[in-house]
Amino acid sequence: MIVQNTLCDQCGTCIAVCPEDALMLNEHALIIDHDKCTECMLCVNICPVAALEKKQ
């Protein structure tokens, strides 16, 4: 997963649905733990502003 920081508003909605606890916010950005992520796409689909996408 990758996050476009210009779009992300750091609201935490994606974190709430991530089944793997692979997402967290720090003081200024969303951080993705690629080791934990299973690419289930739940976060990508829930984001209100489509700031997340699957890494090609």
């Binding site: 909605t13 709430a16 649905v17 991530c18 089944p19 739940l42 689909n45 829930i46 209100p48 502003v49």
Partner: peptide, 13 residues
């Protein structure tokens, strides 16, 4: 376990 199913959350703007 606090992870929410998609149907149990409302994304908003």
């Amino acid at each position: 376990g606090t992870a929410l199913k998609p149907e149990d959350i409302e994304p908003c703007v």
